[in-house]
Amino acid sequence: MKVHVDEDRCCGAGSCVLRAPEVFDQRDEDGIVVLLDAAPPADRHAAVREAADVCPASAIEVRGDA
């Protein structure tokens, strides 16, 4: 799995951080998403996919399974 975030689309809702805090964080100054792990391990894939699904700005793209 490869994860990509579009910081320009991010609205700072923080849903991704709540679902997968090991993979996503937010900048303190504006709440914009920070990608901590662009290739998370398999045990985090479900949480990352859920984070992408609930992102209100569709700022998270997930590619592949491994």
Rank of each mutant, 00 (worst) to 15 (best):
V33K: 01
V3W: 05
A20E: 02
R9W: 12
I32Q: 13
V54C: 10
A66P: 03
A42I: 06
G31K: 00
S15A: 14
A38F: 08
E7S: 12
E50I: 08
F24D: 10
D25A: 15
V62G: 13
A66L: 11
R19D: 03
D43S: 08
M1H: 09
A66G: 15
S58A: 12
V33N: 07
D43M: 12
D8H: 10
S15P: 06
L36V: 08
D65Y: 14
Q26Y: 12
A46V: 11
V54Y: 13
V62A: 05
A38I: 06
A47I: 01
M1Q: 09
E29Y: 09
R19L: 03
F24T: 02
P41Q: 06
V5I: 15
R63K: 13
A38T: 09
A66V: 07
L35A: 07
R49T: 00
D30L: 05
P40M: 04
A57W: 10
G14E: 03
R44D: 10
E7N: 07
R63H: 12
A13P: 12
A39G: 08
V48T: 07
R27I: 07
D65P: 04
A59I: 04
L35I: 05
S15R: 15
R49F: 01
A59P: 02
D65N: 13
P40L: 09
A38D: 15
M1F: 08
L36G: 11
D25R: 15
C16E: 02
C16Y: 01
V3Y: 03
R27K: 08
V17H: 05
G12E: 06
E61W: 10
V48G: 00
G12F: 02
A13K: 10
L35P: 04
I60L: 01
D65K: 11
V62P: 00
H45I: 00
D25G: 11
C10Y: 01
C55I: 04
R63D: 00
A39Y: 10
H45E: 08
V33P: 03
R9D: 06
D53Q: 12
D8N: 09
L36N: 06
A20Q: 06
E29N: 07
I32D: 00
R27H: 11
D6H: 01
E7I: 08
I32Y: 01
D28N: 09
V3T: 02
